[in-house]
């Protein structure tokens, strides 16, 4: 493999990491509060707002129903509005974020619903406000689950990021299609796949390690 190709692979890897990191971060910024709200706003819950909950739930489901490749193309005008352009790696962050946010919201919602209702009752009995219950009880207790869920979201984003070549987004997927497939360079294709495997493995291991560190629910061997 020529030095040229190695440079290409390196650049594509950085582009993929850039897209995944930024859209993951933005997706979390949107998805986390959305998930918290979804988990606490059904009738009789802390922030009880059943109508808003139903509408947001519908929007989340609708967004998640659209296949990613269609989403990318369908929201081109919106992408142009936000990013100033509809093609390129930075522009690709818009659909990636839009796909990640509802996914992360559902993950956060599930993790928060896993928290024992007895803890909410205990916090209410201490005189906590709904805001304090979310900040001091629900989020910290759900954190290991959220960390695992975010890992899942990052892995999915790595997969999605391979499709943004359709709108001129670059990165590993785009490199694989253009060189490995269209120019029939199997060594490039193989290299792309190997790098993707390494990335996914790395993200998964890191996520699991973080979740383990955060989780104190089971008694761990600490030389008791």
């Amino acid at each position: 493999m020529s030095a040229n190709l190695i440079a290409l692979l390196w650049e594509a890897t950085l582009q993929t990491l850039y897209m995944v990191a930024v859209s993951g971060l933005l997706g979390t910024v949107i998805g986390l509060p959305l998930g918290v709200f979804l988990a606490t706003s059904k009738r009789g819950e802390l922030l009880s707002a059943p109508a808003v909950n139903a509408v947001l739930g519908l929007i989340v489901n609708a967004t998640r129903s659209i296949p990613f490749i269609i989403l990318v193309v369908a929201i081109i005008p919106f992408t142009r509005l936000i990013a100033g352009t509809s093609i390129g790696t930075t522009a690709a962050i818009v659909p990636l974020t839009l796909a990640a946010a509802p996914f992360i919201a559902r993950i956060v919602e599930t993790a928060i619903r896993e928290v024992d209702g007895g803890l909410i009752e205990a916090a209410r009995a201490m005189g906590a406000t709904p805001h304090q219950i979310i900040r001091k009880v629900l989020l910290p207790e759900a954190l290991p689950g959220i960390a695992l869920g975010l890992t899942l979201a990052m892995v999915s984003l790595i997969g999605y990021s391979a499709m943004v070549g359709a709108v001129g987004g670059e990165g590993l997927g785009d490199l694989g299609i253009r060189y490995g497939y269209q120019r029939f360079m199997p060594d490039v294709m193989l290299a792309v796949v190997v790098i993707l495997i390494v990335l996914v493995q790395g993200v998964q291991s890191l996520g699991e390690a973080i979740a383990r560190r955060l989780d104190h629910r089971a008694a761990k061997d600490r030389g008791l």
């Binding site: 024992d116 803890l119 009995a125 005189g127 906590a128 207790e141 104190h216 629910r217």
Partner: peptide
């Protein structure tokens, strides 16, 4: 909330936060 601070409560299943230490649970 002020009334609740004047009435502590304990539970059958303890309802302690799993991710807080003993010290941090009592500080909550």
């Amino acid at each position: 909330r002020a009334l609740r601070r004047d009435a502590g409560m304990i539970f059958q299943h303890f309802n302690l936060l799993a991710n807080r230490t003993v010290r941090a649970n009592i500080a909550l």
